[in-house]
């Protein structure tokens, strides 16, 4: 019996999409280093894509989300960063850390996004609407944490994009000033200044909200 022509045409059209991940391959990928996975990608084998995504998507998404304050843009950033990673895999040099390279792509994407006037106008609207409620604390502590989160997010918006990029990479991603300098395309000295100024602004904003030195001295 001949199969329907429409089904055949559909099957032929979708041939290239049929690369199902094997559980055994997946398990093996877990044991490979970032550099080894990237070597496979550079050879034209995209099967490590999901493993690399699983390793770094959370860090990339959170950085973009905190930087742009927009969950939709953070989603786009995350997807595009990994697509670019595959398309431009040959630009990755094995002696560098994959995380540094991925954050470079992410930071570029975020800067481009903010450069567009339309995005700057709406970028502060989406403030932590999807934060999970921490359940392990008392209601008072939960409320305090919620308030802190909003204060921090608000304080972060007061920073320049350069300062925000530097403090987010330092505080939340644990990157060294040398790595941040590589990502931001500036000197380590400039990173030091940006982080210092960001901390000064945040300190004032957060201490002001909490009643200034009265609170801080009580620690």
């Amino acid at each position: 019996m001949k199969p329907p022509r429409r089904l055949l045409a559909w099957a032929v059209r979708n041939l290239s999409k049929m690369f199902p991940s094997k559980s055994t391959e997946k398990r093996e990928m877990k044991h490979l280093s970032d550099q080894e996975l990237m070597r496979l990608v550079q050879a034209g084998d995209f099967s490590p894509a999901s493993e690399i995504y699983d390793r770094y998507s959370s860090r990339i998404y959170n950085f973009a989300y905190r930087f742009l304050r927009n969950s939709e843009a953070a989603e786009d950033a995350t997807q595009e960063v990994f697509v670019k990673m595959l398309k431009h895999a040959n630009q990755f040099h094995g002696d560098a850390k994959l995380s540094t390279w991925l954050f470079s792509i992410t930071a570029n994407w975020c800067r481009d996004y903010l450069r567009k006037a339309d995005n700057r106008a709406k970028d502060s609207e989406d403030v932590l609407v999807t934060l999970p409620a921490p359940s392990e604390f008392s209601p008072d502590r939960t409320l305090e944490q919620r308030e802190n989160q909003l204060r921090i997010q608000k304080a972060l918006t007061a920073l320049t994009p350069e300062q925000r990029e530097a403090i987010l990479l330092s505080r939340y991603q644990g990157l060294s000033y040398a790595e941040i300098a590589q990502i931001s395309g500036c000197s380590e000295g400039a990173v030091k200044t940006r982080v210092f100024r960001a901390m000064e602004t945040l300190k004032k904003a957060l201490a002001g909200e909490r009643g200034g030195d009265r609170c801080l001295n009580a620690i």
């Binding site: 998404y61 999970p132 901390m199 300190k203 957060l206 030195d213």
Partner: peptide, 22 residues
């Protein structure tokens, strides 16, 4: 002390889960 408290407060910002659709 002020720096340390600011740094600690920043830690209250939680990790957001990446939506599965991404």
């Amino acid at each position: 002390l002020a720096y340390r408290e600011t740094w600690r407060m920043m830690g209250d910002l939680p990790e957001v889960e990446v939506p599965a659709r991404v």
